[in-house]
């Protein structure tokens, strides 16, 4: 599954971006360049799906793909998929419907929190229902621990009833997984006298690369989060675990601040001065905002004629490379303007 994701990224980037841009994409780096890559090349489902990926691990997986002749290196730090790679990708896409479950751009900022809450709550409830109050929490991420503590206060009156509901909702969603996939997800859960498996153990048990384990778990989380959000009345118990943040735009805190002042009528220059940031940084924020908020208008930053001219050039050249596009346009058109137009197009 993980190698299919890499192959898909390499295919879609059409040799226009370096391999490290894939790494940043999977890690979910909040830079306007990475966001632009995700959007412009149609890779937004993979944005931020592998936050614990290390550079070494990533490079290692590329060399494996190369050894298996699924990709080759072009002269200049560029990767290309081979014919064998194309076939392998095709097969994987047909065989792994879970690939389509990934929805990184929209849920990457809430998926981890949702999962941590759920894991800890299942462990807590499972133990408390057996009157076992001495157990060591599966993780100690402060925010989720606090949340679970609060949640318990609300649920303790009818813990049993709530747990039955939660079970039924989870069961119905896991039923939509392929059975080995549901096995993997459930084996990760910790409950009363049952400690979940580590990713390493899951990898060994199902004979999968450890990266695939991570991807299967992520795809399941994204699937559950989206199902729950789209059918809120069907999944009231699980809905409670969705962090508030989902209702906000997936912006970095800093970009959100910029957006706040923008809405108050401040100019880019004024915000830069106010926040003691470079103008470039504020412009990056604007691009981030354009990507995530479809109601945001770029008209005050790019004149209509310029916008049309930029779009014509992009079409003619059939590329997403900024440098190439800029070289074919008059000097009066800045990089910022081109990026804004691209952001609007790929919203």
């Amino acid at each position: 599954m993980y190698s299919a994701i890499l192959l898909k990224c390499i295919t879609k980037l059409q040799n226009e971006r370096s391999p490290s841009s894939i790494y940043h994409l999977l890690k979910g780096k909040r830079s306007s360049q990475t966001i632009q890559d995700a959007k412009a090349y149609g890779l937004s489902p993979f944005f931020g799906i592998y936050k614990t990926l290390s550079k070494k691990q990533f490079q290692n997986s590329l060399s494996i793909l190369q050894k298996e002749n699924l990709i080759t290196w072009l002269d200049d730090d560029q990767l290309m998929i081979t014919e064998a790679g194309r076939i392998s990708l095709q097969t994987d896409m047909e065989e792994s419907p879970e690939l389509d479950w990934l929805d990184g751009f929209n849920v990457h900022h809430i998926a981890p929190q949702f999962w941590l809450r759920l894991l800890l709550w299942i462990q807590t409830g499972s133990n408390l229902l057996k009157d076992e109050s001495h157990f060591i929490p599966v993780h100690d991420q402060w925010e989720s621990v606090d949340w679970v503590r609060q949640f318990y206060r609300n649920k303790k009156k009818d813990l049993e009833g709530h747990f039955t509901n939660l079970y039924q909702e989870l069961y119905s969603l896991l039923k939509l997984h392929r059975s080995f996939h549901a096995d993997i997800v459930v084996s990760r859960l910790t409950g009363y006298k049952k400690i979940g498996l580590s990713k390493q153990q899951i990898a060994e048990k199902w004979k999968l690369p450890i990266e695939d384990v991570e991807m299967y778990i992520q795809s399941s989380i994204h699937f559950i989060v989206n199902k729950v959000c789209q059918n809120q009345s069907e999944f009231p118990a699980l809905l409670a675990f969705i962090p508030e943040k989902l209702k906000q735009l997936p912006l970095t805190d800093s970009a959100a601040k910029t957006y706040y002042w923008l809405k108050q009528g401040y100019s880019i220059e004024h915000i830069a001065k106010k926040r003691r940031l470079k103008i470039n940084t504020i412009q990056d924020h604007l691009i981030e905002i354009t990507y995530v908020d479809s109601s945001f208008s770029i008209d005050s930053y790019v004149a209509k004629e310029d916008k049309e001219m930029i779009n014509r050039t992009i079409d003619e050249l059939n590329t997403k490379r900024l440098k190439v596009i800029k070289d074919h346009l008059p000097d009066s058109v800045s990089y910022f303007m081109i990026r804004m137009v691209m952001a609007k197009n790929y919203q």
């Binding site: 039955t164 939660l166 079970y167 989870l170 069961y171 896991l174 059975s179 459930v186 084996s187 049952k194």
Partner: peptide, 16 residues
């Protein structure tokens, strides 16, 4: 055992 039995056990739903 498959996930269905495991999940039941974690949630103490064996009776159902």
């Amino acid at each position: 055992e498959g996930w269905e039995v495991e999940l039941k056990r974690i949630f103490h739903q064996e009776a159902i």
